[in-house]
Design a protein around this nucleic acid. Structure first.
Lengths: 163, 163
DNA sequence: AATACAAACCATTTTATACCACTAATTTAA
DNA sequence: TTAAATTAGTGGTATAAAATGGTTTGTATT
């Protein structure tokens, strides 16, 4: 089974903030959540909207969000600046949403506003997470990524960077 | 089930000091309190208003407040300065409140005054606790947190801080 | 008894959720 | 390779739940 979020696609969002989650993403979320047993809701995903430097939504299965949480707790004692920063970023600036019976999720108004989402949104698979973007911001970011390494470094194949 | 306090929201507080507790926070409180059995009231939460260096309210399920209490008792013998300071902070400067049948709690006048709360209050989920803020103080604090790490440290993803 | 405050009760608005229907695309089976 | 069946994506409506405002009742306190 595929456990890596892949590909890019565009979906409609209605006035209430309902968006279909790509079917393959949906399957991965449910499958990942099932791994840790049924004590948590398998239809739940966590969406991090982050601070002002982030202009997209970062989406995780509940399981991975817990991993991040445990990681933060184990590395940074309560009360330290990094701990507070990370708690704020990953917990305060996030929400948990449910996959509804039609395979959609509901994005609350403040989250839509924060990520500047309108009637069309872009999904982008990023391996263990996926992102949701305003289409213009997305293509802007794509250009930035493309410009990140010069032609003579990447030549025609980014695999050289793995050497 | 979700056991992590997440997200931020703004609620109204009336002249009597009644505030709705976000529904998902409410569920977590009741669920957490249920874990230790029914000998204590499952609708109770503890609110620490703290000393003058704290300008928000820190809210815990009854269970966690007990954990903190046990922790203090086991680490610091009666009569030591640290014990006195911590007892004062977490017990003297705190109250226990009930969730009413409408999902609200009542904040006494002196607590409202201490945290400078008016007709609108901000809720911020912090994992195992949540906070209540005066909206202006809250956005002030958010700016401080955002400035805590510079762009080149955080790059585009705070996860780098976990490395 | 008068006041202050807390608790309980009731009503309204808003928002989230569940439900149903339709279309398009894809897969399956004949 | 075509027809049928299934799944994905989308829109609308009905229902339930959350948030909040107001009124009444109860209970201490002075």
């Amino acid at each position: 089974m595929l456990t890596i979020f892949r590909g890019e696609s565009t979906h409609k969002m209605d006035q209430k903030g309902r968006v279909s989650i790509p079917a393959d993403y949906r399957r991965i979320i449910i499958e990942e959540n099932a791994k840790v047993g049924k004590e948590l809701d398998q239809n739940t995903l966590v969406i991090v909207f982050g601070d002002n430097r982030q202009n997209h939504l970062e989406c995780y299965p509940l399981t991975l969000s817990r991993e991040i949480h445990e990681n933060i707790k184990s590395k940074f004692p309560r009360g330290t600046p990094k701990r507070e920063f990370l708690d704020n970023f990953f917990e305060t600036k996030s929400i948990a949403v449910q996959i509804d019976p039609n395979g959609r999720m509901l994005l609350p108004q403040h989250v839509r506003t924060k990520a500047e989402l309108g009637s069309n949104v872009c999904f982008a698979g990023k391996g263990e997470s996926f992102q949701i973007w305003n289409p213009e911001k997305y293509s802007q970011r794509q250009k930035e990524l493309e410009a990140m390494f010069r032609d003579d470094e990447v030549i025609s194949n980014p695999l050289v960077l793995l050497e």
